[in-house]
Computed example of a mutant assay.
Amino acid sequence: MNDVSAPPESRPGPPPYDAVVLAGGAARRFGADKLATLVDGVPMLDRVLASVAGAQRRVVVGPERETAAEVVWTREDPPGSGPANAVVAGLRACAAPYAVLLAGDLPYVDAATVARLLEALVADPTADGVMLVDDDGRDQHLCSAWRRAALERAVAARPDWGGAAVRRLIAPLSTTTLAAQGREARDIDRPEDLTSSS
């Protein structure tokens, strides 16, 4: 029988988490609804959602689309008011002690990526969050795992996050990074990004 009284950090396996996938944006450089684009025969958004199949709840922030996954849809208020506001909207639908934040245009992220992020977070009790860093040394704020309570403290720091970047929202938090492996941190902005070398 599972010991449900034990804290998440002491239980075997990944800790209980919800996933927030940002799926808004105009995709002007892509020229179409890029999240519906097939990557190895699977829509990009479905690939991202498959990486968090172990989440207690998968929350997608953006206009509703067809998807094979069971998800909770929500929108930032007002729609189009920026990625930090989208994270805020997604968090409102979360209840698990951990939250994974993903951009909807990361088709090469997978369950192993998510597991590494969560494992690193649980292993470091001083960290509020863990994010991937790509080959160019850029922190991937939307490929990250967080203690939900820490994110909510950051959200409470100001009444309106409209127009703000995610990096501003998480700036006060204690974070660590993991080096990306292969293509997992590659986001897709243009069609040619899907055919360029890894």
Rank of each mutant, 00 (worst) to 15 (best):
L173Y: 02
A171Q: 15
L121M: 02
W161F: 04
G163K: 10
R167Y: 13
T113E: 04
A120L: 05
T176I: 08
H141R: 12
A164M: 12
L117W: 02
I170G: 03
L117F: 02
E119W: 10
L151E: 05
R116Y: 10
G137P: 04
L169P: 00
A127L: 08
V109D: 01
V109F: 05
A164G: 10
H141E: 07
A156G: 10
L117H: 01
A171T: 09
R148I: 01
S174D: 11
A171L: 08
A179N: 13
A157L: 13
S174I: 05
D110S: 02
A145W: 07
V155T: 04
A157W: 08
Q181H: 11
D160S: 07
C143Y: 04
L173W: 04
G162I: 02
T175D: 09
G129K: 10
G137V: 00
T113A: 08
L132S: 03
D128H: 07
L169D: 01
L132P: 04
V166S: 05
R158D: 09
A171R: 15
A112S: 15
C143Q: 14
V130C: 03
A165Q: 12
D110G: 10
D139V: 09
A164D: 15
A180F: 08
W146K: 03
R186I: 14
M131K: 12
I170D: 00
R167C: 10
A180S: 12
D128S: 14
W146Y: 07
D160P: 08
L132H: 11
L169R: 00
A115T: 12
P159F: 09
M131T: 14
D134W: 07
R153Q: 08
R183I: 02
V133T: 15
A111H: 10
P172S: 02
D187C: 15
D160V: 12
L121K: 00
Y108P: 04
T176S: 15
Y108T: 09
T126R: 14
R153A: 11
R168F: 12
V133A: 12
S144H: 03
I170Q: 00
A150S: 15
Q140A: 13
W161H: 04
R147S: 03
